[in-house]
Amino acid sequence: MSAATSSLRAAALADRAGLAARHPAVFRPLPPSRLVALAIFAAALGLLVFGLWRLEFSPGRIAGGFEQLLHFLGLMVPPNPGTWSRTLLILHGLAETLAIAFLGTLLAAAIAFPIGFLAARNTSINRIVQFLSRRVLDSIRGVDALIWALIWVSVVGLGPFAGVLAIMTSDIGTFGKLFSEAIEAADRKAVEGVTSAGGGRLHGIRFGVLPAVLPVMAGHLLYMFESNTRSSTIIGIVGAGGIGLALSEMIRTLEWGVVSFIVLLILVTVAVIDLVSGRLRRALAG
């Protein structure tokens, strides 16, 4: 440290009182809210470090895993659907996956539609019904679709029927929450207009709330169908039907060319559904 720098630092320390008087905001103690925020950040950072240590996070293992991943990707090139009969079987599984996603999404939306009105503050019967409806939706939504698939496979056996029930059950909680939030966010002016014209509570919901939320609900349904197409692939691995079952079998028998073909087929299907549903959502919003 140079002599000039030392002299400037000494002068600044000597004039600390003057600096505090001229710049009170800099020397002001941190408010309690800022201290709480810093404490939360420090706790989150400590939890992150502890989690990485406890779960044996290792850059070396990641590097080794990437090397293994590249090896598998090399085995998957080029994609190979195999025999014609196998290709037909894969396409049948894809059609089954789409049917599972469509039926499960539609049934879940139909069941969640009235529950959404019971869970919304502005349309529920009373606070107790609203509270219980929300807790039921939270409980259903707290269980992943894969767990529901394992449950329904145990109940009704292997096959696409269990997949439809798994998607339906999982989406009831999601749709109920989304529908209730859309209902609560609806403009109250339409309801007030119906009420001022002599309409009752049900008339306000039918002619005031419903026309405003139906396009939003339809948009949610289209998005969930797209999402459930991917979910149906995963739950098929546990025996709930669809193309996931074929994918699991090809991975088990190490037929990586067929695995690559199935993965590409799923990606193309999801991309097409995303394109179509996106245009439909924009049309509904417009």
Rank of each mutant, 00 (worst) to 15 (best):
L8H: 10
F225L: 13
L222W: 00
F225Q: 00
I273N: 07
G82F: 07
V129P: 02
G74N: 01
V49A: 10
G200T: 07
I128L: 12
H92Y: 07
L89D: 15
P29E: 11
F117S: 01
S6R: 14
D15P: 00
V143F: 05
R16A: 10
L118H: 05
F207G: 03
I111G: 05
I125F: 12
M1F: 08
A120K: 00
Q68S: 13
V238A: 14
I205A: 00
G116A: 03
I40P: 00
E56C: 06
G199V: 10
P81N: 09
L70V: 10
A95K: 12
L45I: 11
A42W: 05
P114C: 06
P114E: 01
G236I: 02
G286Y: 06
E181C: 06
S2P: 06
A39P: 09
A197I: 03
S154F: 08
G176R: 05
L118I: 11
D138A: 14
T123G: 11
Y223H: 05
L280W: 08
L264R: 10
I100V: 11
Q130M: 13
I90S: 03
E226D: 13
P59W: 13
I183G: 02
L247R: 04
A149T: 14
L247K: 04
I151T: 07
F66N: 00
A162S: 15
A108L: 09
V216I: 12
W152A: 08
L158E: 08
T253W: 07
V276W: 10
S277H: 08
R121D: 13
R252D: 06
R141A: 03
I266V: 15
L106E: 03
S139D: 04
S124M: 00
R279K: 14
K177W: 05
R279L: 15
N228K: 09
L35Q: 07
I273Q: 06
A42T: 08
A246I: 14
L267Q: 12
S154R: 13
P78M: 00
L48D: 00
L118S: 09
E67N: 08
P59E: 07
R61I: 07
D15L: 14
R282T: 14
